[in-house]
């Protein structure tokens, strides 16, 4: 079959669609669902701009076929943003100037949130390690690491 019918959850909404087998998940959400917050940089796994969550785990959506996501729960930056899950992280990015052009930002936010869910109080080297697969061509990373660190500290102070 060069096309397939898939049914999946995207940001909590049931979606059913007919997709070409070769279509990747990034192009599926961008072109068929109009969710353009997921960015496409390199299309071979190197830059991290296309990072999403599938069944709670971060993945490269340029290296995942839409048919492979059949039956899965997919969360894009729109989902994480609209639910308020990362509102504090987004605010910290803004305050610390952790974005300039913003191309890498959706992937950075999702990857950073993945770390913070696993390690409430990461060292700076752990932050750098977890973000090592995400390229930023503007900021020099320092401000991004600061914003993630600040968010971690602020979350720990929360009752």
């Amino acid at each position: 079959m060069t096309t397939a019918r898939i049914a999946l959850m995207v940001n909590g909404e049931k979606i059913s669609a007919e997709v070409p087998a070769r279509l990747n998940l990034a192009d599926f959400v961008r072109d068929q669902l109009g969710l353009t917050g997921t960015h496409v940089g390199c299309e071979h796994g190197v830059c991290g701009a296309c990072t999403m969550r599938v069944n709670g785990e971060i993945i490269r959506s340029c290296l995942t076929l839409a048919v492979q996501a059949d039956g899965c729960a997919v969360e894009t930056i729109e989902g994480l943003s609209d639910s308020g899950e990362i509102a504090d992280l987004q605010a910290a990015f803004r305050e610390r100037n952790a974005l300039q052009c913003g191309y890498c930002t959706p992937g950075m936010l999702i990857t950073a949130q993945d770390l913070l869910l696993k390690h409430a109080d990461p060292e700076r080297t752990e932050i750098r390690e977890h973000l090592s697969g995400n390229y930023c061509r503007c900021t020099g990373y320092h401000a991004i690491v600061d914003a993630v660190e600040r968010t971690a500290k602020a979350r720990q102070r929360r009752p």
Binding site: R22, H44, L63, T64, L65, Q68
Partner: peptide, 26 residues
């Protein structure tokens, strides 16, 4: 064979490989 796709899909996207069929064992 398609397992995780983390080497095969980059190769396909870069057009370094063009198999007629992918068998997903994932």
């Amino acid at each position: 064979i398609l397992s995780g796709g983390q080497s095969l899909l980059p190769a396909l996207n870069l057009r370094l490989a063009a198999p007629a069929i992918l068998i997903d064992i994932g």
